[in-house]
Nucleic acid binder design. Sequence first.
RNA 1: GGUGGGGUGGCCGAGUGGCGAGGCAGCGGCCUGCAAAGCCGUAUACGCGGGUUCGAUUCCCGUCCCCACCUCCA
Length: 490
Amino acid sequence: MGLRLYDTKTASLRDFEPLEPGRVSLYYCGATVQGRPHVGHVRSAVAFDILIRWLEYSGFDVLSVRNVTDIDDKILEKSALSFQDDFDPSAGDGPVAEPWFALAYRFEQAFHSAYDALGVRRPRYEPRATGHMTEMFALIARLIEAGHAYPAADGSGDVYFDVRSWPAYGELTRQRLEDMQDAPDADPRGKRDPRDFALWKGHKSVDPETASWDSPWGRGRPGWHVECSAMATKYLGSTFDIHGGGLDLRFPHHENELAQSSAAGDGFARFWLHNGMVTYEGEKMSKSIGNTISPDEMLAAARPRAVRYFLGQAQYRSQLDYRPTSLSEAQAAVERIESFLARALEQVGAVDEPDEAGSVPEGFRQAMDDDLNVPAALAVLHDTVRAGNSALADANTVAASSYAAQVRTMTEVLGLADVPDHQSHSADSAAHAALAGLVENLLAERAEAKVQKDFARADAVRDQLAAVGVAVEDSKDGARWSLQEESARG
RNA sequence: GGUGGGGUGGCCGAGUGGCGAGGCAGCGGCCUGCAAAGCCGUAUACGCGGGUUCGAUUCCCGUCCCCACCUCCA
């Protein structure tokens, strides 16, 4: 029993075997960098980060690619707005007169910050659309030659994919052309069919000259879909293992990618994976609805590791609903895991050394192999924590050490261990050392008070520390203390 | 209208034709000077109506409701 993944194209769970033994090629859609990220973007990245980590744990070398769409209508529109006289930079929309490429780069960095803050590792390659004109030209030329694309008849310089020339069109989402709703505001322009989509967009006079490139069909810029087809096959070959992205990209984006790449003769993706949407109290979180929550807002409300736990805790295909209590619940769960590891470290010694026991429990493996059933895997993780806590209580250090190693490995696979977090006793900054000295002095006083049965005084010290965010817990071996995040205090 | 996914206990969220995951919150107990943490125990459940079955939350039919996509969207 190996890994099984749900393939959207066949709408079924399929045994996963890579094209090349031991090596997985994966492409997943990154952001159109037209604004700051919201948690929906990051959920997708977390989902694929977990997939990559699980594949690597399972022994595969993963060649991962995630694109950056750094040229599109909205980027140009937003940049154009910044040049207007009444543009208000204080609204947080960026500097006045910001060229489109500067704006795109600024938001690309914002995405990186969000990914980094949540322990989403960088893919092997992260190509930008603007750097791959040559590859797109080649793909478009092949399509025209094969009779599946045509320059618009209206002289606009546009080049369209001819959906009627490709009978398989609609296969990814199992839709028939005639069943598709006609867009009410469909502008036929020079199209043969309203559903034809642009591979190349002829330059318009309102757009900056820097946002256009010379092509065999005149100056212009690429359509969205062709970028991904061109970049995926450049880095992964004409046939590759997995293509991923958010469920909302299934149509038209991925449908169009599949159509154009198949029509050009490429095998393209063998598995299509789509992550579910993040909703806010039941409704899809999106820019257009305006109900988005940014990673920064979440990070202000909870520790990074708790945010990561929240975003990764549901099965990746299911909808993930955010509500106000979600983060504190996630944080409680994370701290349960962490406090076990911290106590295991204190009582048993280092558990992070390479260790045979550091493999994941069988139940965890089965859950992850079953289309990344993270909720079931987390159940195993929590069961292991419980067993570990019991072993610590029984002073069974051999068992506790083994459980701790397993827990560590599981948190690594889920990416929790990699989340930058400052909740640590081993923080070695001078400030932390000073704090530790002060706290430990107070705890020594408190211990003395306890010996003298002066519990009022002991409790006063504990309250005093709690008031400044230092939690104190007594144990057989003395008091432990830890810093509480500000958000966790009343 | 077309396509796909859902409705599980106070909340989140897995899963299965019959022994009721897990987390969070609650309750009782152990531990503790008291707490906290931890451990043990514990209640509340599978939208609704039928059907198949010895037995259905799980399969089938019907029905209601929700969500996503069909337009830029992770």
